[in-house]
């Protein structure tokens, strides 16, 4: 995958993020520091361009998912000053989370694990937008969630707040 290639970016400090499926993402410190988790970790262990720190990631963060997170962090490390300003950055954000629901969930988990708050905001907003105005059945179908309420419990819930189920 193209996200997995190394980023030539001068002689700055680098860090290597290694996914469980064996892909390595070499990123600069500004990119890594977008993640609170990595920032904390790197402030402890440090890293250099000659001997970059290799950080193994949990299996839940596949290379495809990490690719998305790295894409986000690289773009945001550059900030709104580059490539068309804040408007372009907002558009980038919007397009980044145009994902199918499985990928959206994976990126949500990754953003939470790596502590990238703004990315978590974006994925949460995307999930909320999907849920908005859906009926209970539609939400269940969309997310593949099976109800674990008894028929009796369902009845009680609906009779308590009929306005929500109209």
């Amino acid at each position: 995958m193209s996200e997995g290639t190394k980023e030539p970016d001068g002689g700055e400090e680098k860090v290597v993020l290694k996914t469980h499926d064996g892909q390595e993402f070499t990123v600069d410190m500004a990119t890594a520091n977008q993640s609170g988790t990595l920032k904390n970790l790197l402030s402890e262990v440090g890293s250099s361009s000659n001997n970059p720190q290799v950080i193994p990631l949990p299996s839940s963060i596949t290379s495809r998912v990490l690719g998305k997170v790295v894409e986000y962090c690289q773009r945001h490390a550059a900030g709104g000053g580059r490539r068309g300003g804040m408007q372009a950055l907002e558009q980038f954000d919007e397009e980044l989370v145009e994902l199918d629901k499985d990928m959206l969930l994976d990126v949500t988990y990754a953003a939470a694990f790596l502590d990238v708050p703004r990315l978590l905001d974006l994925t949460s907003q995307a999930v909320a937008d999907a849920i908005k105005n859906m009926s209970v059945e539609e939400v269940r179908h969309y997310f593949g969630v099976v109800s674990d309420f008894t028929e009796e419990e369902e009845k009680v819930i609906r009779s308590e707040c009929p306005w929500a189920f109209e």
Binding site: S124, Q125, A128, I131, K132, N133, M134, S135, V136, V139, R140, F143, V145, V146, S147, D148, F149, E154, I157, R158, C161, W163, A164, F165
Partner: peptide
């Protein structure tokens, strides 16, 4: 927190 009260009520009815 991004949903309205009505949407949250529906979400609560999805599963336990």
């Amino acid at each position: 927190k991004r949903l309205t009260v009505v949407d949250r009520t529906r979400v609560a009815a999805v599963c336990k």
